[in-house]
Design a binder for these strands. Sequence first.
RNA 1: GGCGACGUGGCCGACUGGCUUAGGCACGGGCCUGCAAAGCCCUUUAACCGAGUUCGAUUCUCGGCGUCGCCUCCA
Length: 452
Amino acid sequence: MLNLYDTATSQIRPLKQRVPGQLSIYLCGPTVYGPPHIGHGRATLVYDILRRYLEWTGVAVRLVSNITDIDDKIIDRATRENRPWLDIAQKCEHVWFESMARLGVKRPTDVPRATEYVDQIVDLIADLVAKDAAYRTDDGIYMSTSVVADYGLLAHQKIDDMLAGGGDRNVFGADQKKHPADFVLWKFSKPGEPAWPSPWGEGRPGWHSECVVMSLELLGEGFDLHCGGADLRFPHHENERAQAVALGKDFAHHWMHNGFVVDTEGEKMSKSLGNVTNLPDLLDRYDARAYRMLLLQTHYRSPVKVGLDNIDASVNALAGIDSFAARTSSLTATPDVATLDAFRAAMNDDLNTPVAMGVLFDAVRRANIAVDAGDTQSAASMSSAVREMCIAVGLQLDVAKEVDADAQALATALDAARAAKDFATADKLRAELQALGYLVETTKAGTTLRRA
RNA sequence: GGCGACGUGGCCGACUGGCUUAGGCACGGGCCUGCAAAGCCCUUUAACCGAGUUCGAUUCUCGGCGUCGCCUCCA
């Protein structure tokens, strides 16, 4: 059973399954108005690892992750660039999933778009209005947070205390709100803006209403886990919950939040600070698996520095596992039980992937020792355990690729030259093969080639 | 101003009141190799500062210093 930190209770507790053997997860997806940055990459990788691990243990996971395809930022950009807003949303969504594919992040089981749920969103807001939990102002319909007794649950702070400071920013519709914490459910549209009909006038849904509707529509009440980046804890998740609570609905039973990607000075990367690295740029420069490895070696709730040194270390660590995979690819056996037990224990302890990776690296080392000692039995069961662990966390190993006939001929010639002690020729052949992009491993047993 | 997280060896990063375990990367030495590469072995003896609790604290408590986050753009 996976024990997982729950933001609502500030405790590590079992992640309960509403239906045994199944797990329902809602992950707040991106607002598609620009390229994804590496913070998005972290969030999606963390939950991809969670999902894959759960699936590996035999749990059927339904992961719903939305696309926010209508939002002020999309409209702003459309206006600025004089393009249709839908064009921006669709192109950005395409880039998003392209990056996800490169990262090896499995596509969610459901990808609802906000614009596909406007009717249901209107219905939900109407229910809130009917219950006096929402009210109208000149610019939209607002949620009355004071009807929610435990508003502030996820923030772990009283509203008054939250409002005491930090009031140095522009708050949408602030002048007409009944309470400063109230938030917009429906925004009336200005001329030329995208608009949908509603009983209160044309407009568009507020961000917080989209997610509560889509999660409840697709997963139903009392779904197992709601997750996202730590910055969504408040206000976004708090506000989603407030709407559900105000309607008497059973909302998410467990809340999970991942830590941020920070820059080399330790500051959070965010678009407003201008210190973001775009995900496509990162993926152009490095093996995508290196980012996954880097995150696996950090706890999901800790901040992680993503810099050149860090990624290089992960690239090198990965190279070691790759060459291990290549030298043990032909071995098959039942995976070593103790190793997998240790791995599960680490993962079940609030997804302690750094410890789990320790187990993995230890297994690699022991398997290598066994190979060197000619103990194929142990080598096989250890290496099989390594392959299992890699599957569980979504690490694809680069096993030896096919070697073309020409290169194989050069390798054979290389072996012949070595046998004849013609080392000048042997060195030349090796250099040739390396120039062709192969990793050349010359051993007593003969030369093996891998794609570099 | 409120709430919270963190400060571990050259870098990243876990566990833990004592029984010298992290783990990865880098550096150095060795084995292997014709030489390399890959792999293996060994190595360097760390916990921001101060006080307290304790037989004993990196680990608990308090204080200080520092870094970071949330407080209606945000993964």
